[in-house]
């Protein structure tokens, strides 16, 4: 069904307009809405582990507050009805090109390793990971 004739989408405009009358959708002041999902320090610990960033014990609490505020801000999106919308995959209709599976470049091991913090015998060197 073409999106323009979708009754659901027609309501989106209406809902947004209503919203605009009640609460300004964009306000240049800091939004005061409470975060829907408030992150606790354990969640921040888990995210930091996933992101491989060490966070000091005394930073979890303030970070949880900062990140919750940002999430509260982006959660405005839940107000938009997107039931009939395909997620955007390509911009300006650009499609990815094909090329032949052929080596076009190479033989630059020294260049590739030039910025390595540690190397050994033409390889990157890391701490032992397998006993």
């Amino acid at each position: 069904m073409p999106a323009e004739r979708n009754p659901r989408l027609a309501r989106i405009g209406g809902a947004l307009l209503d919203l605009r009358r009640r609460r300004a959708p964009i306000t240049l002041a800091r939004p005061g809405a409470a975060a829907l999902s408030k992150l606790d320090r354990e969640t921040v610990r888990r995210i930091a582990r996933l992101a491989r960033i060490r966070v000091e014990e005394n930073e979890f609490e303030p970070l949880a507050g900062e990140l919750s505020k940002i999430l509260g801000f982006v959660e405005q999106l839940s107000q938009v009805d997107t039931a009939a919308v395909e997620p955007l995959a390509a911009i300006n209709g650009l499609t990815l090109p094909w090329r032949e599976d052929r080596v076009a470049d190479g033989g630059k091991a020294d260049d590739v390793l030039a910025n390595a913090p540690a190397r050994a015998q033409g390889y990157y060197a890391v701490p032992k990971v397998v006993e």
Binding site: V85, E86, P87, L88
Partner: peptide
């Protein structure tokens, strides 16, 4: 969700 709103 964000990619859908982006499409809109």
């Amino acid at each position: 969700k964000a990619q859908k709103v982006r499409a809109l």
